[in-house]
Amino acid sequence: MLDNIKSTGKKATRDGFGAGIDAISAENDQVVVLTADLAGSLKIQNFIDNYPERYFQIGIAEANMMGIAAGLANGGKIPYTTTFANFSTGRVYDQIRQSIAYSHKNVKICASHAGLTLGEDGATHQILEDLGMMRMLPGMTVINPCDYHQTKAAAIAIAHHDGPVYLRFGRPSWPMFTEDMPFEIGKALHMAEGTDISIFATGHMVWQAVEAAKELAKEGISVDLVNIHTIKPLDEEAILASVKKTGCAVSCEEHNRMGGLGDAIAQVLTGNHPVPQEFVAVNDSFGESGTPAELLDKYGLSVADVVKAAKRALARK
């Protein structure tokens, strides 16, 4: 099955978001879009051109944007807020908690330029804590798609979901999988069947996990590969079904090792079926300026790092 998983080209996940906005806006006239002076970076220019009356340029006032979005949701609109992930979460956490999550407002918080792969903008913009922050909010759905097509599908799907959503995606061009890859909120995607080790990956790290699984296969190691695009609600059934086959696990995320996908999986395992687990994530550190590839290598998120983590987990079985 791994031989059939190939890149069909490269596009940024933020481009997938823009395409998803175009599609859902044509379908649903209650969708409105707000931005904090980053329309170009979030790829919403087509929406602005086609639906100027449904577009709100808030300026560099992210906290105000969240409050306005909550008000629009009160009026029956489906607001999508758009800015960088750091400004979508860390800068406005109080507003999200009080005005959106606490009252379960139907606001879609759409966050680009997340993680180390933001690249040269450096540590101040490379938020690595956002998945943990958002998954701790009661009632918040947290989605981290892996490629252009999955991000497009997610941007469409969240309009049909009642309640607050955090949708995280990235800046760089990234390998794409097939366009017909299914997407359902809260339903993990089983990408390859295996018997030796479970690898759970999210976001850009899905591609790293695919490449690592192929390397492991060359050594006769069979990988059960699962794409966890929805961090919350987590597909516990898929996780447990996988580890019951394999007996050990690796979690892969472009995020701090504390609070994100790895921690979420660990909670499931310790409470239901304890097995050895290794974490591929940033180890309690901020990032720095560099190319995406350089940063993934330096901070332990390369393909080789996934392979090493898999071998450590196997050794602990």
Rank of each mutant, 00 (worst) to 15 (best):
R91L: 10
D180A: 07
A188D: 03
D29M: 11
E53F: 05
A154I: 06
F286Q: 06
P276C: 11
E236S: 10
I48F: 03
L314Y: 00
V250E: 00
Q57V: 03
G259Q: 04
C252H: 01
T35I: 06
G300T: 05
W207C: 04
Q126D: 13
G71L: 10
A310Y: 06
P292N: 10
E62K: 08
W207R: 08
Q277K: 08
G300R: 06
G220R: 00
E53M: 05
V223G: 00
H113L: 11
F286Y: 15
R135N: 13
K187M: 07
P138W: 11
I239M: 01
P172M: 08
G76E: 10
E215A: 14
H161C: 03
S103R: 14
I24S: 02
V282A: 04
N86H: 13
T246P: 00
I96L: 14
T89F: 07
S289H: 12
H125R: 07
A69L: 03
I96A: 09
S25T: 12
V210H: 02
I156A: 03
G247E: 00
K218A: 13
E237R: 12
K232I: 09
T83G: 09
R14K: 14
Q126N: 12
V268S: 10
F56S: 04
L38N: 13
A114W: 08
I60F: 07
K10Q: 14
G40H: 12
V307I: 14
R168G: 01
M181K: 09
A264V: 08
P79W: 05
P292V: 07
V31N: 08
K108H: 06
A63Y: 02
V32I: 15
